[in-house]
C-alpha cells in the first residue's frame, strides 16, 4: 500500500493544469492552457514579452487568481482560500527577476524567516538549514551581510537559497537572469543547473537557450496567452513547427 502510493507519487504529476483561462478585465491573458508536469521534470517557457509567461507561472502558486480551469499542485487542487493557497505556496519555491530579498534582514535572516514562521523548527535548526543552502549556492561567507551589500548575481543566488530553505518540491523561475549584468548570469545558471541535476521539478521562464538545451526536458513557446508549441529541446531548436516559433527563435538566437 505504502509502496504503491509512493510509486504513484513518483509517476504522478507535480503540476497539472487543465483548461486554464485568465482575464485582466476584458483582456484575455491566458487561453485554455493545458499542461502536465511530472515530478522531476524541467520545463522551460519562452515567448515574446507580454505573452503571459509570468502570469502562467504566477497562477501555479496562486499569486494570480484564475477564472477558468483547474490547477493541481502535488495532487492538491489550488483553492481560493488563503490558508490552502499558503500551504501550496510553501511547497513551491519562486525566484523573481528582481530577487526581492528582504532589505531589512541579513542574508541569514532572509533564509530563516519563512521556516521560523511556518515550520516547527528551532532557530538553530533553521540557521543550519540556511547555511547548508547558502553553501550550496556558494555564498556562506556573506551570511551576515545585508542584501544591498551583495552583487546582483549573489542576491539572486540568495533568493534561490531562501526558497530552498522551505524544502519545496517544485521551483518556479521567472526570468531569473534578465536583470543581471552579463558576467553574473553564469553563476546563477550554474546554480540552477545543479538544482536540476538533483532532480528538482522546475519551470523556468527564460530566454537563456543554452540553459534550455542543457537541462530542459521540454521547451514551451507561448504567444498571446496560448501554448503555441511544446517540444523536446532538440526538436524545438532544430526543427520548430510553428512559424511564430521560427520567427521568435531567429530573433533571439541572432542576438
Amino acid at each position: 500500500m505504502v509502496n504503491s502510493m509512493s510509486i504513484d507519487q513518483l509517476a504522478g504529476s507535480a503540476i497539472s493544469i487543465k483548461g486554464l483561462s485568465k482575464w485582466y478585465g476584458d483582456f484575455k491573458v491566458l487561453e485554455a492552457i493545458d499542461l502536465n508536469i511530472d515530478n522531476g521534470e524541467k520545463v522551460v517557457i519562452c515567448g515574446p514579452s507580454g505573452s503571459g509567461k509570468s502570469t502562467l507561472i504566477r497562477c501555479v502558486n496562486g499569486l494570480e487568481e484564475h477564472q477558468e480551469g483547474q490547477i493541481e499542485v502535488e495532487g492538491k487542487v489550488l483553492e481560493k482560500d488563503i490558508k490552502s493557497i499558503s500551504k501550496v505556496r510553501a511547497e513551491v519555491g519562486m525566484v523573481f527577476q528582481h530577487f526581492n530579498l528582504f532589505p531589512h534582514l541579513s542574508i541569514l535572516d532572509n533564509c530563516t524567516l519563512a521556516p521560523l514562521t511556518l515550520r516547527n523548527v528551532s532557530r538553530q535548526e533553521a540557521e543550519e538549514t540556511a547555511m547548508h543552502f547558502l553553501e550550496k549556492v556558494k555564498i556562506p561567507d556573506q551570511a551576515h551581510k545585508f542584501p544591498s551589500q551583495l552583487s546582483g548575481g549573489q542576491q539572486q543566488r540568495v533568493a534561490i537559497a531562501r526558497s530552498l530553505c522551505m524544502k519545496p518540491k517544485i521551483m518556479l523561475f521567472d526570468e531569473p537572469t534578465s536583470a543581471l549584468d552579463p558576467e553574473m548570469i553564469k553563476e546563477v545558471l550554474d546554480t540552477m543547473v545543479e538544482l536540476a541535476e538533483e532532480g528538482m521539478t522546475m519551470i523556468c521562464v527564460t530566454h537563456e537557450m543554452g540553459f534550455a538545451r542543457e537541462v530542459a526536458d521540454r521547451v514551451i513557446f507561448m504567444d498571446s496567452g496560448k501554448v503555441v508549441e511544446m517540444n523536446t529541446p532538440e526538436n524545438f531548436f532544430s526543427n520548430p513547427e510553428h512559424p511564430r516559433t521560427k520567427l521568435f527563435l531567429s530573433q533571439i538566437l541572432d542576438h
Binding site: 502558486n61 499569486l63 488563503i82 490558508k83 499558503s86 500551504k87 505556496r89 510553501a90 511547497e91 513551491v92 519555491g93 519562486m94 523573481f96 528582481h98 526581492n100 530579498l101 528582504f102 532589505p103 531589512h104 524567516l113 519563512a114 514562521t117 511556518l118 533568493a159 531562501r162 526558497s163 522551505m166 518556479l172
Partner: peptide, 21 residues
C-alpha cells in the same frame, strides 16, 4: 510590491508579511 510576492510565495500569510516585512 515584489517583497509581498516574495513573502507570499514562501508561504507567508498576509499577517506574517505585515508583521515581518
Amino acid at each position: 510590491k515584489g517583497l509581498k510576492e516574495a513573502a507570499y510565495s514562501l508561504g507567508l500569510r498576509p499577517i506574517h508579511y505585515l508583521r515581518l516585512v
